[in-house]
């Protein structure tokens, strides 16, 4: 007993002074369930739900992201105006911090680790320092801001405004809105290429996806989906960026497009109303949150087939694999 106490004391001492090496990432898939206010955690080997985190610190969990070192999961809690900080190893809530008004979607800045979150109710992009648990300030954008992404070098933060139909480009670190680009009606999400040059933006009501050249600030390519029920929501690129995967909402499919021409290559049936997408680090697997069938589909990005459907909670919104560190590499967007 005496020895144990002694070790514990040393451990505490070391923990307080020496930076602890980042633990192994778990590879687990985290799923935010928008309307039962929980997070399902799925084992990537067995595809079993290994835990449902019942207490996420508030209501309406939507977008998720990891701290730069991968040791903390951030979750936007829209109803309670909070960001939850969750331990991805213990799978439990650590604390909550302010998230601005109605936080929905966010990105974790690759240089600072600050959270840039769309505040839907006040039409701002809010900067949060999660370490200090402080709101740093809001940047005015269009109405109902949603998807946010940072270029890999962090120099540009792009955010869409659903109700003003724009993509806003914000320079970092000076936080100036440097461009406002009109796109199709109700833009929802966007992703960026590894070289930081192109954005892929979905427009839900227009049923479109557009490619924006960040430097020229122009739409360089546009595609309107032919499916009448297509309501494009989330978007991800595959490993060599030759293909783009788009969740089509009411069409109950994920479309696969040629990333250069935006021609449709494939259409994959998934559950009902697919919204959130997540690639694993190698981008061999794509997880799809199906909001109306309350399940997650796992797609093999090579064969483009669904290899697993996993029942989760009420209205899954977002998905994310715990297998990357923003401080080391670009998130698998």
């Amino acid at each position: 007993m005496k020895i144990k106490h002694w070790c514990l004391a040393i451990g505490l001492y070391l923990g307080a002074t020496v930076p602890v090496a980042a633990e192994e990432l778990t590879g687990r898939l985290f799923v935010s369930n928008e309307w039962d206010h929980t997070i399902s955690v799925i084992d990537p080997e067995t595809w079993e739900v290994i835990k449902v985190i019942e207490d996420v610190g508030g209501q309406r969990p939507r977008d998720m992201g990891f701290s730069r070192d991968g040791t903390k999961l951030y979750v936007a809690l829209g109803i309670d105006d909070l960001i939850a900080i969750i331990d991805p190893y213990e799978m439990e809530l650590i604390e909550t911090i302010p998230g601005g008004e109605d936080p929905e979607a966010f990105t974790v800045h690759p240089e600072t680790g600050h959270i840039y979150v769309s505040n839907e109710a006040t039409a701002q992009l809010m900067q949060i320092d999660p370490e200090a648990g402080e709101l740093k300030g809001g940047i005015d954008v269009g109405l109902e801001p949603e998807g946010v992404v940072s270029t890999p070098d962090g120099s540009i933060i792009a955010v869409v405004s659903e109700s003003s139909h724009m993509v806003h480009l914000i320079s970092w670190p000076d936080h100036e809105v440097v461009a406002n680009i009109l796109v199709g009606t109700r833009p929802r999400e966007l992703t960026v290429t590894a070289d930081g040059k192109l954005l892929y933006v979905t427009s839900e009501v227009a049923g479109e996806i557009s490619i924006i050249d960040i430097e020229s600030r122009e739409i360089v390519k546009n595609h309107r989906f032919s499916q009448r029920r297509a309501r494009p929501k989330d978007v991800r690129l595959n490993a060599d960026e030759s293909l783009v995967f788009v969740s089509l909402g009411r069409d109950n499919t994920v479309a696969v497009l040629d990333a250069e021409t935006l021609e449709e290559v494939d259409l994959i049936d998934v559950g009902d109303r697919p919204w959130g997408l997540a690639m694993n680090r190698e981008r061999t697997l794509l997880a799809v949150a199906n909001g109306e069938s309350d399940d997650v589909s796992i797609i093999d990005t090579e064969t483009r087939e669904v290899i697993k459907d996993i029942y989760v909670g009420d209205s899954p919104w977002g998905v994310i694999f715990h297998d990357f560190m923003v401080e080391k590499e670009m998130p698998p967007r």
């Binding site: 006040t122 701002q124 300030g137 809001g138 940047i139 000076d174 936080h175 100036e176 809105v177």
Partner: peptide, 18 residues
């Protein structure tokens, strides 16, 4: 008014010049 109010409450990080 709600936009002005919330901005004032939070404080500006950067003035956005329109």
């Amino acid at each position: 008014s709600r936009i002005g109010r919330s901005s004032a409450a939070i404080g500006w990080l950067a003035a956005v010049t329109l």
